[in-house]
Design a binder for these strands. Structure first.
Lengths: 236, 236
DNA sequence: CCAAAAGTGTTGCCTATACACCCATGT
DNA sequence: ACATGGGTGTATAGGCAACACTTTTGG
């Protein structure tokens, strides 16, 4: 049995996603040093001795790229292939982070946003992590209220539609988006309206998300218990 | 910045679940040594230097508890609270493992199966891991074909019903279970029938699962792309 | 012929998408 | 008045749970 005293180095990495200019983008920094110098890398760093992985990724995002206004952070998966980095053996815990579209965090020189659909050359296995993050976001848009984490505090339905379309990668109808979210009780009207654009048109009503935290709004489709309302259960 | 040379020890743990005597059970071993001596613990061990976490957990289950016939293994989450163990700082990657009900793996002396609903005193945070595993299994029973991993190779609908009921924790109707799985194409008849019990009755048809691997069978309910059949997409 | 177990038909409810139509504003 | 964008009504389709009913066996 090989239970030697091998302690493995552990890093935390986050794919921080935001809808910018109607496109889903991810925050990357360009590596200066080898290995993989010049390639683009996810923010993160080594796990500290007195923190759990979620504290760690939040700390590192705050310190290194000054992203403090994360609306949602969620663990994705462990990436642990022995050769995932050529230099060291390093296990990574990957996260999905979301930033609402109305904030524009100040990021360092070597850091910038990149459309998720057109990633540059990424370091190590970071491309796979970004794709995992996008997949998770897309899935949760369908059955949770996670829209609150990508949208600004108040919005019109068309604005919300552009956010959902950007994140999902295909056009969604404002009509049906409104209905689905309304029926589930995810949206609530603020009572205010937004002024029309230069071309006129009916002023749009403003909405906000009713809840501030993640909730499962669509109980899984089938095999639910006989009667009882299992709706809005906790997130797995 | 605290990027010291701290390497964190890393273990892999699995909640191995099986339906036994119509109850969902988990495999635990009783700790002999401190800390938490006498308490029940999940199988697993330290991550080796040349393996990824999934290889590691499969190796450890094979070595330590002789469980080789896993029908499904899936990563759950990282447990990394600094004080999750009183002795060492140790990060754990937790897995869900499934064993089909017709196999009875030989397990060591200090190891035994326990109903998930009535766990004994567990070591460290292992109770939380078991609950996470159960939650994941329950969710996936609803929207994937994961039943293949808990059921024997061939079965009647009533047998399948008892498996689903045990795993879900509530009674499901054989009628509707059959219909749901049939419509989705996850079940296929073998053509054979099982002999009736002592009380008589119509002989039950035998079925098997059509696919051997995990598939998402129920595309998420809403916000799907305009038309195209996105069914049976890959698992996130 | 009766009891028991398996499987099917039918109904009612709910949710979703698509599309036509009405509403409110600027020019 | 008309163009423009916002919002609602309605039709259609489909999935699911509940339950009555039919089928097939043993006694």
């Amino acid at each position: 049995m090989s239970d030697s005293i091998t302690a493995v180095e552990h890093e935390v990495l986050a794919a921080v996603l935001q809808v910018r200019t109607h496109v889903l983008q991810v925050l990357l920094w360009q590596r200066a040093r080898k290995p993989d110098a010049g390639r683009w890398s996810l923010p993160g760093g080594r796990l500290g001795p007195d923190e759990d992985v979620e504290h760690s990724i939040r700390r590192q995002l705050a310190e290194k790229v000054d992203v403090r206004q994360l609306s949602h952070v969620e663990q994705l998966s462990v990436f642990s292939a022995p050769d995932r980095r050529p230099d060291t053996r390093m296990v990574a815990t990957a996260f999905l982070g979301l930033v609402p579209s109305h904030v524009d965090p100040a990021v360092p020189e070597d850091t910038s946003w990149h459309p998720v659909d057109r990633l540059p050359e990424t370091a190590f296995d970071h491309r796979a992590i970004v794709e995992r993050a996008r997949g998770r976001l897309r899935a949760k848009l369908s059955y949770t209220n996670i829209g609150f984490a990508i949208a600004p505090p108040e919005f019109t339905i068309s604005e919300l539609r552009t956010h959902y379309s950007a994140a999902l990668g295909y056009t969604v109808s404002a009509t049906n988006l409104q209905r689905v979210l309304a029926r589930r009780g995810v949206l609530e009207p603020t009572g205010e309206t937004a002024p029309p654009g230069r071309a006129g048109g009916r002023p749009a009503a403003l909405f906000r998300f009713a809840a501030g935290g993640l909730e499962v709004t669509d109980q899984f489709a089938v095999l639910r218990p006989p009667a009882g309302p299992y709706a809005h259960s906790s997130v797995r």
